[in-house]
Design a protein around this nucleic acid. Sequence first.
RNA 1: GGGCAGUUAGCUCAGUUGGUAGAGCACCGCCUUCACACGGCGGGGGUCACAGGUUCAAGUCCUGUACUGCCCACCA
Length: 897
Amino acid sequence: MSENALPKGYDPKAVEPHWRDHWETTRAFTPDPTEALENPKGTFSIVIPPPNVTGNLHIGHAFNLTLQDILCRHARQLGKTVLWIPGEDHAGIATQNVVERRLGTEGKTRHDLGREAFIERVWEWKEEYGENIRRQIKAMGSSVDWTRERFTMDEGLSRAVRKVFVTLFNEGLIYKGDYIINWCNRCHTALADDEVEHHPQAGHLWKIRYPLADGSGHLTIATTRPETMLGDTAVAVNPDDERYTHLIGKTVILPLVGKEIPVIADKYVDREFGTGALKVTPSHDHNDWELGRKHKLEFIQVIDAEGRMNAKAGKYQGLTKEEAREKIVEDLRAAGALESVEEYGHNVGHCYRCQSVIEPHVSTQWFVKVAPLAARAKEAMRGETQIFPTSWLKTYDHWMDTIRDWCISRQLWWGHRIPAWTCDACGKLFASEETPSCCPQCGKTSLTQDPDVLDTWFSAALWPFSTMGWPEKTKELEAFYPTSVLVTAFDILFFWVARMMMMGLHFMDRVPFRHVYIHALVRDGEGKKMSKSTGNVIDPLEMIEKYGTDSLRFTMTAFAAMGRDIRLSEERIEGYRHFVNKIWNAARFALLNLPNEEAHNLYLRLAAAPETLEGVQYRWILHRLEETKSALKTAIADYRFNDAALTLYTFIWNEICDWYLELIKPALQAGGEEQAKARAVLWLVLREAMLLLHPIMPFVTAEIWKALPQAPIREGGIPDIAREPFPAERPACLNPQAVADMEMLQAAITAIRTMRAELNIAPSLRLKAVIRPQDDAARELLTANSSLIVFLARLGECVIDPEAHAPKASASSVAAGNEIILPLEGAVNFQDELTRLDKELAKMAKEHAMLAGKLANENYVQRAPAEIVERDKARVAELEDARVKLLALQQRFREAL
RNA sequence: GGGCAGUUAGCUCAGUUGGUAGAGCACCGCCUUCACACGGCGGGGGUCACAGGUUCAAGUCCUGUACUGCCCACCA
């Protein structure tokens, strides 16, 4: 029997690497698209949300990967051809920043290297750290197809990017122009609106007097950014504001500058805020920009791209904007133009990558005209694509409704260079997929390529089809597009999901995914979002090292209720490591009892027709196995991952381990037919439990499976659970009567255990128990299984006797209608037993009173569904019966005292 | 300013169509029972934030309040 033996303790560190290598070398997760097209069960595909190539896997990635892996492994079990494409994102700003920082430690800037050398440096970095992220994805057990790994800047994807850019440009959906954009002085690039994070910041509200040009007094404005006043070209008031109506059309003198600027009227101005008069700086504020265009004001830029005051700032030229602010306030005060200063907290935009304050800045940028794309993308989310949980639909709609044109140019070096050229001769601006040799308009060969690169999300938006070989017409696209589901956290719903939707529809004419599953965001201990830039990441590798991958995965699956955020606690991972250990030990015990020799294969023959096996314990566990199977299937289909985990946890621990294994121990020792039956069901339940658990815990189940008798040899010469189908359903094994019978046995056993524990009877004391059954059916059941009761309640003897009377000195209870009597003969303090009985009666009386109250209510009896009422009535009868029996027993006991 | 979540056992969180509550950890008692002390058996602990409403019946549906958090937003 030793050939099946598992080692005494489960050691994830020894087991996991083996399986990772095995699955990769045997190409267990590499599908054949031709076969996929012929598979009657269909295909299932996911593209990984590509982690940043520079990054470290944080716990959010681990969570995200776990859920995707469960879906993929489960889909494989269901017979589908599964493709899960892995890959990494080049992460323009983030990666460039990291490499620049590293250069900084050498005392260099990227300009010292020059564009080409710098990009080379980034590629080196990418090669070094891309391997890191790849190792981490593997560590999680992710069943991705490494032969199809992609990178957003690899040759194929770059071609897709150029094709998309040129197409959109020629369709007029990409344009170039001077606009006010969000400018990061530190990263030295434009940012899209949604790359700006607003954080509250303490500041001041300065009130400044602008004297009227006609000398008739002054107008006081309020501002949080006095340094921008040098670029003011108007003061705006609300046309309905009586305080100022007489000033509209007049001019005021801009202090310190001495320039005359008009007072204009616009409903945009809030009368309640500040003084009700707004200084307008079209070049340095988004709203003022709009006002400036509307009222055709002059645009004067006074702050440059470095965040310093420029020549237009006169004497303040060369100061940083912070220094300028201080100096200007000082000068205003000296000039008597400063009316007041108050403390003022307000929201300030910060760069989502480096957290520097964002400066609104006018510059030439590239934009995608999103309105035509967004309309279709919005509709699709309530049609061809479904989002889970549906509550996100509203948020998605709102975003699609308010979306503005997308600024896609970045003044970086790391990224997809914009494939647009200007002819030095005739000035023609054109886009081209390949580097052009001459101007398409004038034919001259002196061309200049746009220096900017594309927003990282531009290439990410193409991910679902670019990874499958687009623009070639590949079999992958045919078989696996649209993908089945996109699994992601809500924080990139807009950055990424919406844009994939727009691009997928525009270029493939089909949605990129059928489902979008938005999972919770994993937060740190304080409930803050974990992110690389904040530095509050938890390293999943550390958890894997300490507790094993399966523990981590199971914990996160159990956490995965559809909510908004979860906080991961290490204690809980440790708790579920106990579960892994429990499974291991249960399997170890089972395998010690499941010989593989032909001579012992009677149990395998019995297992082929389990529905024919007699015995309440077998029928019960087989019934529960079927229920667990279907519950699990439904839970995963509905993305109720936590339900899936909990279902398995309860079934394996509380039913297989706590009851089934204990129930069959005597039979396993017995030999003969009984032993064969116990083994047959044990084998069946164990193997199917492993299959059910495998998508959540791939490693421990693979290792156990390998040792299981009759496990088929697969690619690589060993059994491989990852290639096995979902266990077949066995409706003939559904047996509600077995559940009822089992409950009666459990009730009897638990009642005896409770009495023993509460009366402090030594466990070593082999008591005799007498059971007086409530009816013939109970008598038969209990008699047939009395040896089980003896074993599990640690008795010496168990007598089933319909005529039994409690001896004078005894403890007693009523369980499922059967009277249970433990003759004690001085083994216990009688007073203890009386107290215990009183407690039991009180508990029953409480429940009885509650139910009786309900049943006394005529409305309830009439209106509630009959089965509910019947159930309550039955319970009341049961309680009354038990009470009578207990009182009689108690009375007898009193007499004995 | 708008929108969306959450408020359930000491802590962290589950609870699918309404039928008076569960898990992990922690806690108490007993147990070295031949898979497992990362264990077994037994036990204690919750007026499900608050106030109304619908209903025979509400943690579960509706309204409002309070607190916490998140997202969006141009109040300088």
